[in-house]
Nucleic acid binder design. Structure first.
Lengths: 197, 197
DNA sequence: ACAATAAGAGAACGCACGTTCTCAATGCGA
DNA sequence: TCGCATTGAGAACGTGCGTTCTCTTATTGT
């Protein structure tokens, strides 16, 4: 095989690599997985990996970035299947419940990465912030269509559910978060907000 | 100095060690800090450290356990200064806000530890679960005194606020969580619950 | 067919870390 | 005062990992 590598092959290799990295790093933590284990799982030469990403840190960032796009697209696809604004917000928690039920669920990949490497890697911390901001805005947009005053609360319920489910391994936190979100949507401030200092 | 070491000295050394470990591990992450750095900060011999804890893993568990006791006692002390049940619940978020404002705040030590080592260390995962369960029960007890149907929601708001503040470095999430908690407390179900499947 | 080159496999390097071991120094009992 | 046990300081050991290097193999253009 050795000889010029096509752009298509490069893209295929990149996806294999990101697939392997995503599975292993999410399951075991970032520092717990060596580049050699990723190489074996991806079925690529180490040299090839370092041609695609200059360092493990860059690979992690690339993995988080691809996961962010897919994860939020999946969520949006599910949520926007509903047409009623209120049902859309509740669908967020149904989607979360589904996610929590998947075998191997181990909390939020971005929160985990931030806890492990946020202090040492600026690049990773930035990627995590970007994901969280995007998730916040996505939720806020859906909630704003029903009850703008509930945006922040619903977002925090979602974040709380993710973190709680990750640690307790109880997928039903999503349902309890859903109920609370329902209550928030029904509460006060349909016209204006009611934030307080 | 070499000769039998008193129990009092042992306790002093243990606290110095836990102090050093807590500061460094929280600030930089667990795997990012070597035992030698902890040794230097604690001002103890490596041999002494391994006489107090048989391994780094045990030291981490000991550190988390002491932090759990102090952290929840501080919270309770602050919250129970208020006498009105509703004010108590809101005080939780004021206390969180205070915490988020402290320099060096970097999210929840237990969530960070779980993300980093929950998959590889049973002992650490167990300690984290214990802390989260205790925190949940503490919150639930305070909320139950005002509006039992809001227990789960308020707890998730608190968890969400901690995680969000840790990543965005915006202490004011605590205030937004507080507003949402206020709304939940005011909502429905004073008599019965309203959980849903 | 043959040089030139590019890619794969994996050995090698340098480093960092958890843990243990050595050894000199010190306080205590006789 | 003398020997013994205990402790502290830090060297040493083994291991694992990120990254680079070597060397072989195979493909391509002439």
């Amino acid at each position: 095989m050795p000889a010029l590598i096509s752009d298509e092959q490069t893209e295929r290799d990149r996806q294999s690599l990101l697939d392997a990295a995503e599975v292993l790093l999410y399951a075991k933590g970032i520092q717990a997985v060596g580049m050699d284990e990723i190489r074996a799982e991806a079925g690529l030469a180490l040299k090839r990996i370092y041609a695609l990403y200059a360092s493990k840190e860059e690979l992690v960032v690339g993995m988080l970035r691809r996961r962010d796009i897919r994860w939020r697209a999946d969520l949006a696809e599910y949520v926007e299947r509903a047409t009623d604004p209120r049902q859309r917000v509740l669908a967020v928690f149904d989607w979360l419940h589904q996610w929590f039920c998947q075998p191997g669920f181990r909390g939020c990949a971005w929160v985990n990465a931030h806890g492990e490497l946020g202090a040492s890697s600026e690049a990773i911390a930035t990627e995590v912030s970007a994901h969280k901001a995007a998730f916040h805005d996505q939720i806020a947009a859906w909630v704003a269509a029903t009850n703008p005053s509930a945006c922040e609360g619903v977002h925090l319920l979602a974040e709380g559910a993710i973190v709680s489910a990750g640690i307790t391994n109880d997928p039903d936190v999503a349902l309890r978060a859903r109920s609370a979100a329902e209550a928030l949507l029904a509460a006060a401030g349909h016209p204006a907000g009611m934030t307080q200092a």
